[in-house]
Write a protein that binds this DNA or RNA. Structure first.
Lengths: 353, 353
DNA sequence: CATTAGCACTCCAGGCACGGGAGTGCTAAC
DNA sequence: GTTAGCACTCCCGTGCCTGGAGTGCTAATG
């Protein structure tokens, strides 16, 4: 009766919560189903296995743990992990020393793209899982400078420099051969007009201009707008964002991911990047650490995986997301601070430039 | 006695060779050890299994086949495959239709880098194994144009355009702030001096100039040389070449590569790229199709794999290498023409620009 | 002398039974 | 509420067996 009542109220006894915590910690550490005897020993309280069993039965009723088969121990379910992560977990902050080392590593890099690469590697190296860093989104990056260089024929090389001092280039096909001076004029116009705006804003404005074909656009402006339009047109076409993934092979060492067919799907997702990006994109909204456990992510390829992400900021504005992908059974208490700190350090390192 | 004699002379009877061929073909098709009965049937000649057994024993003595255990059929060894590939194999050329489709696919791409990507994907797609394309080596690429753009502070953006219309950029740190005009002067000097030379030649000349600090270099030239030196210095530092690998996950479906530990090493090699590149580099020398079977490559990670490569040419000069990586037991008769044709088509497509 | 049939032998794979170990749920007693 | 006891379930490793596939050797054959 009493337990029934507790169940109905969905109020989970404090002691039961504690047991859940210990059980999950044990399971994360060992990877084996945890039985009542083990749990009784681990819990520290002086209780007999039989007592524990009662509690475990309750936890199972609530869908927080299950047993793989009749006479195995218990294993956390997705909801079990969820509860654990949300309210039971005690994260141990990284030691100052470790933070220092992290910062040092990131400081070595000069170019922003190397920085991202480096961050991704650090994540995977520290966690022995897969690290992922989403490059800053276009709508958060400010335009700094554009230049056009004539190539052979009517081809023009467009060079786009962003405030992060990242450089992109793209070859566009002009309608006729332009002189170096003409191209410079066009670039000047664009630079004057758009400096400081985000790329996304710039893009929108450009397309507006192109469609309206405004009367107040003189020939130079029109030409400039048209060429810049090509730059953005192509860019938006092939990819709305990109990310760097490293340490994927680390995942091959986990036996919960040993199924080759599933592992292949996972690796395909990594190669494709598209879905991973989509997932990371969602994490931009909710600021702070975001965790997807198992099927929560909504991507079948990630069913046996958890994803821990944190957004990183430039000038107090969320610019992108980074994170770690590993098996559901991962050391959340370690991974979370690592992801957290790396995000902060990456933001700081990016700002410095 | 007689057989002994044959062995000593290392002359392999014609019939034995034929059996070896049939055996390997069968093994490649089925993946199972081939027994005498099966081979007798497959060979078409009207011979009893017992006869076949005698021949097989000879083949085993010569190290061309082995049996996994006493009562299994026979499986080709590395040397067996070698002999097969070198002198027994009958490659069936690709149908015109297939070649047409391949060409079409490659023609879609505009930028050379996309072309490489596309070629790699085609290789992996057609063979259901991993495709790899080595980017043209620097010492084969001709310099076309260099430009410098001032960035914030004393940073300068260097843009390098090669004859393949491929664009590279690199941020360099100048000793002081240069004006746009000064940078243009420097670029002009370099463009005048080096157009048409290979990057490697240019690099060497630049470093000579820098060390000699020749009296006949006026200030502009010296400045230009110094900045260009930085461009090349960095570039040579981080990588001497690069390659694109795709379809790696295809390899996860082969059960001869099912061992997770070995597979991981293989994938690590793919991520590292360094050793793969080294291997491909060797294939540049020997023109024509090159095949490494199993341990022949000399890289432990590739022990269970074969690599089929072909160099591709631009203007009748070998520019790079592409190929396919798969399990030792692969359909060489199919893979070889695919690699061959792709190399030719890629060369042609690159020339067209 | 190459070819072949016959035969004993080896080895693997799969099925089956068995027993121990680990863990559970239930009940009754404290 | 906690606990001991007990019957029960299930996995897993082991040993055993059997059928099948294939081999090597030997002796007979054209």
């Amino acid at each position: 009766m009493a337990t029934k009542k507790v169940l109905d109220e969905k109020a989970l006894g404090e002691r039961a919560q504690y047991f859940l915590k210990v059980l999950i910690e044990r399971y994360i550490a060992e990877g084996l189903p945890v039985g009542s005897r083990t749990l009784a020993r681990d819990a520290g309280l002086d209780l007999s296995p039989a007592t524990i069993r009662n509690v475990m039965a309750d936890l199972e009723d609530m869908g927080l743990i299950t047993s793989p088969h009749t006479s195995a121990g218990r294993v956390p379910t997705i909801s079990g992990y969820r509860l654990f992560v949300d309210s039971l977990l005690t994260v141990k902050p990284l030691a100052e020393l470790e933070i220092g080392q992290l910062r040092e590593q990131l400081d070595l890099e000069q170019e922003p793209s190397d920085l991202m690469e480096s961050a991704s590697r650090l994540l995977s190296g520290l966690t022995r899982m897969a690290g992922v860093v989403m490059l800053p989104r276009r709508d958060r990056i400010a335009f700094r400078q554009i230049e056009f260089l004539p190539l052979s024929g009517s081809r023009v090389l467009a060079i786009l420099v962003t405030s992060e001092e990242e450089v992109h280039n793209r070859i566009i096909h002009a309608k006729r051969v332009y002189s170096r001076a003409e191209l410079e004029q066009a670039a000047n116009y664009l630079n004057r007009t758009f400096t400081g705006q985000t790329l996304e804003a710039m893009r929108q404005r450009l397309f507006q201009d192109m469609q309206k074909a405004r009367a107040d656009l003189d020939r130079i402006m029109a030409r400039a707008v048209e060429m810049a339009g090509q730059v953005f047109g192509n860019e938006s076409g092939d990819s709305d964002g990109d990310c760097l993934i490293s340490g994927q092979t680390n995942l091959m060492d986990f036996d919960e991911l040993a199924d080759m067919a599933l592992l292949r799907q996972l690796f395909d997702a990594f190669a494709e990047k598209h879905e991973i990006l989509h997932l990371l994109d969602q994490c931009m909204q909710a600021d702070g650490i975001q965790i997807f456990i198992g099927e929560e992510s909504g991507y079948r390829q990630l069913d046996n995986c958890s994803v821990v992400t944190a957004p990183y900021e430039i000038d107090n504005e969320v610019a992108g997301v980074l994170g770690v992908i590993g098996p559901t059974r991962m050391a959340y208490d370690r991974v979370i601070p690592i992801v957290d700190v790396t995000a902060k350090l990456l933001g700081a390192a990016l700002k410095r430039r």
